[in-house]
Design a binder for these strands. Structure first.
Ligand SMILES: [Mn+2]
Ligand SMILES: [Mn+2]
Ligand SMILES: [Zn+2]
Ligand SMILES: [Zn+2]
Lengths: 125, 125
DNA sequence: TATTTAATGCAACAATGTTGCAAAAGTAAT
DNA sequence: ATTACTTTTGCAACATTGTTGCATTAAATA
């Protein structure tokens, strides 16, 4: 039985993501932390926060990986919402209320979805 | 006025992607070509094929970039179809006929979409 | 305070993608 | 076929992102 520990790195990163209105990348987090901890530690903390269900991971259309806080998921992650990626300000936002619908051919079994729209966000349009 | 040239590398890569039922990654293409050309050349050929509208790029949920032939787009790319990523056989397939619908908040201007579902493909389920 | 072990820092590595530049190859005119 | 022009290629060098092993540090609990 492994028990998680509250470290400054974990606390800082968790609060950073929780208080951000947009999803953050590893490098953005690193800049914000200003040398508080090592690069590798950030990766490992993010991994832990993912496992613990505090954050979720978003692979943007340009390949950039971002992290955002979880709102409506408790035990299991359930992210069937759309993400919006602004081509101008590069922000990635969770549109928690927007759930897409579609009709899939038979014999496909879905367990996860990743929907991202690109364009201009309200601030940039 | 720059005029494109038909090279063996370009022809081979184009045919490889066109004849594949699933999307291919750079490394998969490189393996198939068996040293026909340099790593960098493959990147540059893919870039050209994208610009010329022969293929489209897919960033999978696991971050792996794949390329697939374009079917219904002529001048401009228009990819509003869903991609399916099999967690078992790792194949990425274009579901050209499946178009999702959703209701976006005001003031968001969409110019591109990237929808990927993960789970088990018909062969693996 | 002492013990336990999770978490960190550091170095080293791997994968993926980019850039500059000289050499090679495709295209069209001669 | 040869020439001239320009695209394309190969190679080396580099950047970014992410991973792993291992010794050290530091939480949590007794
Ligand atoms: Mn989200
Ligand atoms: Mn497709
Ligand atoms: Zn914006
Ligand atoms: Zn499969």
């Amino acid at each position: 039985m492994k028990s998680a520990r509250n470290t400054t790195a974990k606390t800082e990163i968790q609060e950073l993501i929780a208080s951000s209105s947009v999803a953050l990348s590893h490098s953005e987090i690193q800049k914000s932390l200003e040398g508080l901890c090592d690069r590798v530690t950030i990766y490992r903390v993010l991994e832990r926060l993912l496992e613990e269900g505090f954050i979720h991971k978003i692979v943007n259309v340009d390949g950039v990986v971002k992290y955002a806080g979880c709102h409506s998921c408790s035990a299991k992650h359930s992210h069937n919402h759309i993400h919006f990626s602004c081509q101008k300000c590069k922000s990635v936002t969770c549109l928690d209320d927007v759930e897409p619908s579609f009709k899939l051919p038979k014999n496909y079994k879905v367990s996860e979805m990743n929907f991202t729209l690109s364009g201009l966000c309200p601030q940039c349009s």
